[in-house]
């Protein structure tokens, strides 16, 4: 195939051009990195919010069965709650975030494992927020926004407020380099 390499610009480009071989096995592997876990308090926060949710559910079930016997519904709700709590305990050690030079990842789940990665050069902005329960626990959420809708945004809950702020500052600095 003939490749036209005429003109000064093309020549300069060709001089500067480097094309090193990239072997897939040499690339940094996000799946082999040690992820940073959450502080233990986050597990407590999750358990509390789960319990509140199920308390509401339980009250709802009782009200629905006002005319009949609420016991079967309540038993079902309790079994569900126990299952959720069990998986919450089991999956907690798997939760974690990973900050690398070029991207940030979050891993979660035991029944459904997930790893989401957002490169810094695709982040629009980030923010730190805190709910009432988080305030009591001194935990914050780091939200990372990308362009176009919310599907690809990433939220990392249950971070030490200080960590969240530091991460946000890091992201802001990193994303500023790319704009």
């Amino acid at each position: 195939m003939h490749v036209g390499l005429t003109g000064k610009k093309n020549y300069l480009q060709a001089m500067l051009y480097e094309n090193l071989q990239i072997r897939p096995e040499d690339l940094p592997d996000v799946f082999k990195e040690p992820f940073n876990g959450h502080p233990k308090r986050y597990l407590r926060q999750r358990l509390i919010s789960l319990s509140i949710l199920f308390l509401v559910l339980g009250v709802g079930v009782t009200l629905l069965w006002m005319t009949g016997d609420p016991v079967p519904g309540l038993i079902a709700t309790s079994i569900l709650l126990l299952l959720r709590l069990f998986f919450e305990f089991k999956s907690f050690p798997l939760r974690g975030y990973l900050v690398r030079e070029q991207d940030i990842s979050y891993r979660s789940g035991i029944l459904f494992r997930e790893v989401t990665t957002v490169p810094y050069n695709r982040i629009q902005h980030s923010e730190v927020s805190q709910g009432p329960l988080g305030r009591a626990m001194k935990l914050s959420t780091l939200k990372i926004f990308t362009a176009g809708g919310s599907a690809s945004d990433l939220s990392i809950h249950g971070l030490e407020t200080e960590t969240a702020e530091r991460l946000k500052a890091w992201l802001t600095e990193k994303t500023a380099q790319h704009v």
Binding site: F112, E114, T116, P119, T146
Partner: peptide, 11 residues
């Protein structure tokens, strides 16, 4: 054009 990526796997 990719701006984020998710790997998913059930048990």
């Amino acid at each position: 054009k990719i701006q984020s990526m998710t790997y998913r796997q059930s048990i």
